[in-house]
Write a protein that binds this DNA or RNA. Structure first.
Lengths: 112, 112
DNA sequence: TATCTTTGTTTCATATATAAACCATAAACA
DNA sequence: TGTTTATGGTTTATATATGAAACAAAGATA
């Protein structure tokens, strides 16, 4: 059962979300698109899109990214092929790292 | 009432989420941090963090961004002050744009 | 080798995000 | 001006994401 849920967000997180929402809103208007129109294209409700544009932190990331894509806001400042390349690079990097992370020697003997 | 919810995501959206998850995972391991440790710092459950690292599209964007921030993954390739500047620029841009978007002349008289 | 830890899944109860329907205000155009 | 449309708030019912706990398997250290 989820415990009663008061999350805290760093300033950077809040500002990043706020900026992303603002970029989406600006891009939508530049394309002369209505809130309803973009919502329809993304398959979401008008209210949800309005929350996204306000930088609401509690929206599905997939929906936010989808809306951003629809209005032409690039998440990683890269096109799709570059994106795929980054994914491969990240996978390669992960392959080199240890599978699981151990912190310290299990027991500390050096108490003196 | 929400209608029964089969969303579609573009390839770019899926890959962007996948990449972000991979970057988080790689950054976490580079910092020698355990899944549980990062989950605790972010105030989320271990299972949720694992879903984020797998690029799950249905997570709160605030949580994903927060985790990314914790392990040092920059969303916009900028520091906090630059981020704030971008926000202001976006606001200024929005101030210049029309408040609401009108599509076409209301009625088309020119049917002939 | 054996032991401890991390990770990867699963199931389940519930808190909550969402869609839909309203209404009110503001903005755009004639 | 008046009319139409876009936007911004609600409110409510429900689909679903989440936290917690349990389990198994894989990895790391001695």
């Amino acid at each position: 059962m989820p415990k009663s849920i008061t999350r805290t967000y760093s300033r950077y997180t809040r500002e990043a979300c706020s900026l992303l929402g603002g970029l989406i809103r600006a891009a939508r208007k530049e394309h002369k698109l209505t809130v309803q129109e973009v919502a329809d294209r993304a398959g979401v409700s008008r209210g949800l899109l309005q929350r996204i544009e306000k930088g609401d932190l509690k929206c599905e990331i997939g929906v936010v990214f989808e809306v951003a894509t629809i209005v032409g806001v690039k998440l990683f400042d890269t096109d799709e092929s570059t994106l795929r390349k980054h994914i491969r690079q990240t996978e390669d990097k992960l392959a080199l790292l240890p599978k699981s992370v151990r912190k310290k020697p299990r027991v500390v003997h050096d108490e003196f």
